[in-house]
Design a protein around this nucleic acid. Structure first.
Lengths: 173, 173
DNA sequence: ACTTCCATGTAAGCGGTTACATGATTAG
DNA sequence: CTAATCATGTAACCGCTTACATGGAAGT
């Protein structure tokens, strides 16, 4: 249940409302842990019930500002140090690779070509994003580390797709 | 709904029972699209209802062998050529990176170190797996392409984690 | 006035996981 | 005879997505 931990993480640098958090999810975490509005508001209420959060202040328009509790901070630290990341690598893109021979050789090559182009585009996008994250706040500093991962990931995927495309062409003779 | 397409893909090389398919999921597709027994049997019945499959034969112990229909093959090809892969990159591992300053500097470094080690181990595992997949059948040939992606992915992740660890140490001064 | 932004909530549905449940056949 | 393997199914639960629903406050 990592949405919960993402919320704890965001609140660990200061109180915020559901609305504030939603923007942070969109801006900073969208590539790593997207969350929808509907999901977030429901989870905040559950977390308050569980004592990980408390409604610290109320503002205009029914705004509720939440602050992390000691219990929440303890849980966040426990998750960071004791719980190993879950790696579930469902890949729609890779699944298709297994079945490439049900389409024509030309279509198979085209598929890999599209994946290389997509990865190249994503690389460019992340490079731009990283260049625009110039802050010294925690989310910016560590966000750049995460962006660097994305960059390396995109580069590796692009190179793989180009390699695989060449392999297929070679196999065709 | 890619479980459906994974099933269509597997059945495109010949009829199989739910039990057969489950083993193929475990052996060939576990790193790309894991499926549970419960999920698979239910989906097979839905797919038969939808006309993508037909129960082709019955064997001992209530065994039901399914064959892909023309409709199923058409859907598989459509999915391969027309539907772009969905990329949802929820990463538990990367999410933690954003919140690395809620733990001690030593714990943060240790976290990245563990990730590098995990990626290195995964690389070794995949290298072994790839070396053992020597067949010339479709799943083997394309499985090696997919394994190559995993190898590059693991290497990139390991290198990133080592780099990030060095960054943190440098920042600590 | 009108639009945009702020702000929170509910409900239906889907895909996936875990656990439960049952029974036939084959190999040692 | 007994264990392993073959074989299929159901039910509860969980997290996520999409869509619906409402209304207050601020800027132009």
């Amino acid at each position: 249940m990592s949405l919960r931990h993402a919320v704890l993480g965001l609140l660990s640098s200061g109180p915020a409302s559901g609305y504030d958090l939603l923007k942070q999810f969109e801006v900073a975490l969208s590539n790593v842990w997207p969350a929808t509005q509907s999901q977030l508001y429901a989870e905040l209420n559950r977390m308050a019930d569980a004592g990980l959060l408390r409604a610290a202040a109320e503002g205009p328009r029914g705004r509720k500002e939440y602050a992390i509790t000691d219990e929440g901070l303890t849980e966040l630290r426990r998750w960071m140090t004791e719980e190993e990341p879950v790696r579930v690598n469902r890949s729609d893109m890779l699944l298709r690779v297994f079945f490439l021979d049900v389409v024509s050789p030309a279509e198979a090559v085209a598929y890999l070509h599209r994946q290389a182009e997509y990865a190249a585009g994503r690389y460019e996008g992340l490079a731009e994003l990283k260049a625009n994250v110039t802050g010294t706040d925690r989310l910016s500093v560590y966000g750049r580390l995460a962006a660097e991962w994305g960059l390396r990931y995109s580069a590796a995927t692009r190179e793989w797709a180009e390699w695989a495309e060449a392999e297929l062409k070679a196999a065709r003779g």
